[in-house]
Write a protein that binds this DNA or RNA. Sequence first.
RNA 1: CGGGGUGUAGUAUAUCGGUAGUAUACAUGUUUUGGGAACAUGAGGGCCGGGUUCGAUUCCCGGCACCCCGACCA
Length: 419
Amino acid sequence: MKQSQLFTKTRKEAPADETARNAELLIKGGFIHKEMAGVYSFLPLGLRVIEKLETIIRSEMNAIGGTEMRTSAIQVKDVWEKSNRWDDEVVDVWFKTSLKNGGEVGLSFTNEEAYSNIMKQYIHSYKDLPAYPYDFKTIFRNETRAKSGIMRGREFYWKALYSFSKDDAQHQEFYEKSKQAYKNIFQKAGIGHVTYLTFASGGSFSPFSHEFQTITGAGEDTIYIDESKGIAVNQEVYTDEVLATLGLSKDTLVEHRAVEVGNIFSLGTKFSAPFDLKYTNESGESVLVTMGSYGIGLGRLMGTIVEVLSDDKGIIWPESVAPFRVHLLALGESENVAKEAQATYDMLKDAGIEVLFDDRGGVSAGEKFADADLLGMPYRIVVSERSLKDNGAEVKKRTEERGTNVPFTDLIAHLNPNA
RNA sequence: CGGGGUGUAGUAUAUCGGUAGUAUACAUGUUUUGGGAACAUGAGGGCCGGGUUCGAUUCCCGGCACCCCGACCA
């Protein structure tokens, strides 16, 4: 994409009403636009990041048997009354409204009811199990206090998968697979090194749920990490009894602030019971389905990546989620530079490399460099009179102090050394 | 929902009971081009409602919005 066609612009000053680093950088870079507290629009660059994350997550979900679909945002009262979650006294984050004919509806704040209701249509036999439907969807929660930029919003985009299993053994098998899938996701998203499988409170059907917690001061949770075992315990279950159960010692646990970037939860029959979601087993008996839920907030994940991976100049996107892999800068106004930069742009595109081409005229070199640092693409490639003296371009990683000049003929190989 | 704070131009800020200033961004022109260039010119502003006052952006009351701390987070 040519930057001259990108309507968003960077700004020098962070907005006064944002103190969260993720929001400061994402707004300065033009990735997101704040609509109101806890509600953000995703601008072209920001959307590309969300789409990259979505691709990573989709790939891992499909790999463990997930089947993508899309539940509706508008939900009817009847379904939620079955699980006793329609009442505002029970759930205080509902956004509710009414139909013209007077019927009551609410905006989906989670998916258990929708999936339980839908799957009741399709699960009748043990042959129908297991099933792992999931969706990417915008979720609405009327939070009393939105905060931390895009980390805790009133409207957010998430992935939610629900597992439907015939018994606990089948459930556990998938549950373990999902742990690995989640680890893969956070590894690919570039925050694996600071993300820990964390034991958290489990509810009535399981002693624990599992959260994936990423260390950052911007987090809302306190966790205790055992570095050698690579696991952590959430403060909410940080008791002597739990530590003994998990074989952990307070001596080796280190306290950290962290943000929950994902969670997996055994639901047992909590929802299958009220929805009477049963199947007939091999013996002809009617048995309740065993369920689990598996969530990841993509906006929060994006915010977390920014919190973890940035410096005083801007964002440092991992290659896997960067809006573009390469930021190509044309410096100066000479026709020769413009021509060679355009040729480089075409060459990179033809090689299948995603590139943002700063072709803007009348913009100083310093400004282009500052923008490139702020926007944080993994590679910066500069075409200028200086680089053309060596018949090439300067290539610099965002993480490097200085670049190296690479002849045009070697550029693709330089970027794809293993190709 | 409890507590605290803040609302001035697209953005960031200053001052003030009596013509609201600066920076940046924007427009035009000239010069400039490897780390947010220079000069000139131009356009652009007091959250909403009420009160006090000769006069309110300023003081008072109410509302709304936003930020922070706490509670909540299925």
